Computed example of a mutant assay.
Amino acid sequence: MATLIDQDFFARLNALNDKFASSVPSTMARLHDARMRFDVAAPDNGLVGELHQILHTIAGSAATFGFRVLGQQARQLEQRLRVLMAFDAVAPQDWENWMAGLDEYVAWAEMNPKADQYP
């Protein structure tokens, strides 16, 4: 017996895709705002956690909505951040290096978050 297809499934999926796409600019703005508040000499654990949470959310959901590379790059930043979070002390230069990657990611995502290649 053939499985019936929910007639509204694709309409709901498209609506979710549109909702995700429309949220990308504000998500990038949140990342940028957190980055601007970040002090590499004295990182705030709450701010580190906020950055981690935002990146984790992007990494976990972007591909579902057709933003595969956006999600992959978020996952890489998230994994690098987890490494930094594992240490009791991190040199300011190491935070600067990570922030440079975040800056590049946000700038790229602001231009074309659905691009299929990352520089």
Rank of each mutant, 00 (worst) to 15 (best):
V40I: 12
M1D: 12
L84R: 02
D18W: 06
L102Q: 01
W98N: 06
A11Q: 15
K114L: 09
E104M: 07
L84G: 04
D44H: 09
A41N: 14
A107H: 02
A2G: 11
F38W: 04
D6Q: 07
F9R: 08
D33I: 10
Y118S: 05
L55K: 05
A59W: 03
M28A: 07
L16N: 09
M28F: 05
Y105V: 01
R75M: 13
W95S: 03
S61K: 11
P119S: 00
E110W: 00
V24L: 06
V69P: 03
M85E: 15
A41H: 11
A74T: 03
E104T: 08
A59Y: 04
A86E: 15
R82H: 08
P119V: 03
K114G: 11
D18K: 13
N97E: 13
L77H: 02
R30T: 02
E110P: 00
H56R: 03
L77Q: 02
L47D: 08
L51N: 06
K19N: 05
E50C: 07
Q53V: 10
F10H: 15
A107Q: 07
G66C: 09
V106P: 01
I58M: 11
M111D: 00
F65A: 10
V83I: 13
F20A: 06
Q73G: 10
Q93A: 14
D33R: 14
L31V: 05
Q53G: 11
E78D: 02
A42L: 09
W108Y: 08
R30S: 07
E78R: 03
D103E: 08
R30A: 13
M99E: 00
A109E: 04
W95C: 04
A74P: 05
E50L: 13
L70Q: 10
L31A: 07
E110Q: 11
I54E: 13
W108H: 09
W108G: 00
R12K: 08
D88N: 12
E104S: 14
R30H: 00
R35S: 13
V83Q: 11
L16D: 11
G66N: 05
N14E: 15
V24K: 04
A100I: 01
A100H: 01
D8M: 14
H32A: 12
M85V: 06
Q93F: 02
T3E: 15
T27I: 06
R82S: 12
R82E: 13
A41L: 10
D18E: 14
M111E: 01
A91K: 03
D18A: 15
A59V: 01
I5V: 13
V40L: 05
S61E: 13
D116K: 13
D8R: 15
K114Q: 13
N14V: 02
R68N: 14
S26P: 05
A34D: 10
I58F: 02
L31F: 06
M99C: 03
G66P: 01
T64L: 12
R80G: 08
R80D: 10
D39E: 10
T27Y: 01
F65E: 09
V106M: 02
M99S: 01
A2I: 12
F67C: 08
D8G: 12
S26D: 15
D6H: 03
L81H: 04
A34N: 12
M1A: 12
D103I: 01
V24P: 07
Q117E: 12
A89W: 02
I5C: 08
E50M: 11
A74W: 04
L77R: 02
R12L: 10
R37F: 08
G60I: 09
A2S: 14
L51K: 05
L47E: 06
E78F: 02
R68D: 14
